[in-house]
């Protein structure tokens, strides 16, 4: 009896140890990735790296056009996906009744979230670049990324709507407000922090995507910044891709690639951090 208990205890000890090791291992993976890129990338980053275009066949200079290209394509993504996404979320959260249509919409959103990003790229090529004749452009790429981000925006926005108490809606309706008045005055303002957080997180993911923009508008190297929506553009993730695989002097430009990777990671983290801080601040402001 006693030895059985002891054996069980030992078993638990080992079991918990293994599970703890799993978790520790995940932490180590993250640490190694971040450490390797941070340590090797930090020496490349300087003001001129951030503020200058690439020079000398992209073996020198900075990444300014890539930063700006990513910035603009991300804005197009947001302008396209946030209104539609929030609209769809309002429909699902405030209007939809259980039925075949709602089930189909929800199933579609879940499946869209699982469609590979390269397939969005193919779709963007077929629809925006060719069928709609937008060409390979910052607009085509932004729209493609917008489609990719849409399911995420819908899901997070709907969650934000669900956190608004039912009493705010009923109270407003009981005063003779129409559903739309209720949503605009008594639901949207309180869901706003959550929607914003979700939108920024979704957009930070879009900013790091490469596959969807590969053929819809991103360019290897451009001497000047995009001047219109139909121009091609450079983007940070794609720049990292070519600097690490397609460049004629890969080993020589490795420091530049490390620097680009670090900037990309920092950008994504800053966006995430912004989302978290906004959520915290706006929550304090709106929901006391």
């Amino acid at each position: 009896m006693d030895s059985k208990v002891k054996k069980r205890q030992l078993q638990q000890y080992i079991g918990f140890g293994i599970l703890g090791a799993c978790a520790l291992f995940v932490v180590i993976i993250l640490f190694i990735i971040l450490y390797d890129i941070a340590v090797k990338g930090i020496s490349t980053i300087s003001w001129s790296f951030l503020s200058e275009p690439p020079r000398a066949g992209m073996t020198e200079g900075g990444i300014l056009p890539a930063i700006i290209g990513t910035f603009f394509v991300t804005i197009i993504t947001a302008v396209f996906s946030v209104p539609i996404g929030v609209g769809a979320a309002i429909y699902l959260s405030e209007y939809a009744q259980e039925g075949w249509l709602t089930r189909w919409i929800r199933a579609s959103i879940r499946n869209l979230a699982g469609v590979p990003s390269i397939v969005y790229g193919l779709f963007g090529v077929a629809l925006f670049v060719n069928t709609m004749s937008l060409g390979a452009s910052i607009l085509s790429a932004g729209l493609t990324l917008g489609l990719l981000t849409l399911p995420w925006i819908i899901t997070t926005a709907e969650e934000a709507f669900q956190t608004v108490p039912k009493a705010y809606r009923e109270g407003s309706l009981a005063l003779g407000a129409t559903p739309w008045q209720t949503i605009r005055r008594n639901v949207l303002p309180y869901a706003f922090p959550g929607i914003l957080t979700g939108a920024i997180l979704g957009i930070s993911r879009a900013a790091g995507e490469t596959a969807p923009i590969l053929f819809t508008g991103v360019a290897f190297f451009l001497p000047q910044l995009p001047g219109s929506l139909t121009d091609q553009f450079m983007a940070l993730p794609y720049h990292l891709y070519i600097m690490s695989t397609q460049h004629h002097a890969i080993e020589a430009v490795r420091p530049l690639a490390y620097g680009t990777a670090l900037v990309l990671i920092i950008l994504v983290f800053l966006l995430n951090l912004t989302a978290i801080i906004l959520r915290y601040r706006l929550r304090k402001k709106y929901v006391r």
């Binding site: 108490p165 009493a167 705010y168 009923e170 109270g171 407003s172 009981a174 005063l175 008594n186 309180y190 709106y286 929901v287 006391r288």
Partner: peptide, 11 residues
């Protein structure tokens, strides 16, 4: 008009 069980002033 309707007054609810739990006071529900808007925030």
């Amino acid at each position: 008009g309707l007054i609810f069980q739990k006071p529900n002033p808007f925030p």
